[in-house]
Design a protein around this nucleic acid. Structure first.
Lengths: 313, 313
DNA sequence: CTGTTAGCGCCTTCAC
DNA sequence: GTGAAGGCGCTAACAG
């Protein structure tokens, strides 16, 4: 019991015993057993975090924000990767729940019924991050994807583009699907056609974008602007143009989404939507922590986005 | 006890009680408490994994390999990010140890004395991944960095390049530092100069590579080949050349390291060293799992590397 | 096939 | 300022 008090810096222990305890601890390489501690206190310092992809630069940066903020408060993230699969997410949530995390951070609003039930029943703080255009289980932090897509397509329409192509990877990426729908509807309202190949599987990375653009132009040479569902794919598109000598934006304009740094390091800075990836992570973490600390946290935290006009359109 | 048996599928329970238990479990949304389980069994199904960076694409892919393999065996990775800081790694190791993981996966061979002690004393399986050119605490999986750097510089030297530049980010990245040293020594042996600015801080990403190359050429216009410490930075270098109209490889040749897919999607495929990132993760995980299963695992697993000749040199 | 006992290592509570 | 008792939820081992 005295050791426990020393290790946690709680309660009163004489200076003499304290130093003695610490020296013995050092000598024998004793490390507290948090399994027993958490079991006894019936609470842990772990926060479950579920992201859809680990290879995606966006979620890396969001994760970095989460990790930083949790660490400051003495909490640890336990990370699960759902691969954009609701069923997989459910399994992850279940297995994480067995470790009695103090809170949860999920991505987007789309979950299985069971996942939702678990979250509601356990009553621990839950943040759904990235999207704000929906009803959160508990809290959400992010920005409005539909509004961002609308701003982009409106911007491009006003610049005079009328032959749109869209290259999207949003098989189970609901936020991306939302953005696509917004763009499609906006253009439909203007009577402007939008050429979209079937949704792509796999990761929307640079090589994928390069190949996809080549194929799209092969069958639809009339297109004068292509919107990609993210910056990585758009960068791949740019590579295709550089390789084939296609003049950007004169002959073909390009637009991405997410505002990654490397999109701005292209020979022409990419037209894109930028949002506060790192800050979303930090705020999501803080929302959980503040709730645990008994503070009132707003259900919705909208961090907004910016249109980067770029030079590729 | 009967419930425990049903939940774990161990021991013998009648079909009748089994279905009954399961239905009640479903009804009340019961989730096992692994804290208590692991405490009781005094072993857990968690494997501590420490990587130096989460934003780096290489470690993403290594992590993906680890996660895949662990999951198949019913184990979970608990991830810590050291930021290339030994002291931070030590703190992560300590706090992870408190959760009594069944095994550990670290990166590279450079750790604090205390980290090493903890690993040795607890006696759980430990894999150091990425590098094989050294003495592992327990086991290691990866490839020989020095040999890979030697192959690259030899290849470039034989192609006739004689005015070398090197742009490296290896502040605390010991594997990268090893590669740099190899290159420097090789060229020194040939009496060929190597221009290297001070080591850069920050991430070796695409924008960083672009800026660094611009600066290097500014002060050293005579250089005809630049080796970057990774593909991301080399890609940034390529961006600079595209933007400035520098003819690659005629006027300036470029080489990277790691063999990322997007380096091969550039207008000219990048000259680089490729290694089995995903496989390193899988094998590291399997080394831990096999050791836990009581099998004999070789101390060193060398997965090799390949020189990709590319078109940028 | 099912139940009982004891204990994993810690922390809360209460004595001293 | 320190220690003893009891319990967190589970499982190994044994009893029936």
């Amino acid at each position: 019991m005295t050791v426990s008090r020393v290790m946690r810096g709680r309660g009163t222990v004489s200076e003499r015993t304290k130093t003695h305890v610490l020296s013995v601890v050092e000598d024998m390489g004793y490390v507290q057993n948090r399994l027993a501690g958490s079991l006894s206190e019936s609470r842990s310092n772990q926060i479950g975090v579920i992201i859809p992809s680990i290879v995606n630069a966006i979620f890396n940066q969001v994760m970095a924000g989460i990790a930083e903020e949790l660490e400051k408060a003495g909490y640890n993230p336990v990370i699960g990767v759902s691969d954009y699969d609701m069923k997989r997410e459910e399994r992850l949530v279940e297995s994480m729940m067995a470790w009695r995390p103090a809170g949860f951070i999920l991505t987007d609003f789309v979950h299985t019924e069971r996942t939702r039930n678990i979250m509601v029943n356990t009553g621990i703080p839950v943040v759904e991050m990235m999207e704000t255009g929906g009803r959160p289980i508990d809290m959400c932090v992010g920005f409005n994807h539909a509004a961002s897509a609308r701003m982009m397509v409106k911007h491009l329409y006003k610049k005079g583009y009328r032959r749109f192509g869209y290259l999207g990877w949003y098989d189970n990426d609901y936020a991306a699907a939302t953005r696509y729908r917004m763009i499609k509807d906006y253009l439909a309202g203007k009577g402007v056609p939008l050429v979209t190949p079937d949704v792509f599987a796999g990761s929307p990375d640079i090589p994928a974008g390069k190949i996809a653009l080549a194929q799209l132009l092969d069958t639809n040479p009339e297109i004068d602007i292509v919107i990609f569902s993210n910056d990585a794919a758009a960068t791949g598109g740019m590579m295709h143009c550089l390789e084939e000598g296609i003049a950007v934006p004169k002959q073909l304009a390009l637009a991405g989404f997410s505002g990654l740094r490397y999109g701005q390091a292209l020979p022409l800075p990419l037209t894109t939507i930028s949002f506060r990836r790192f800050e979303i992570g930090r705020r999501a973490a803080r929302a959980v922590l503040n709730t645990l600390a008994g503070q009132d946290v707003p259900r919705v935290t909208d961090l907004g986005f910016d249109l980067i006009a770029g030079a590729t359109s």
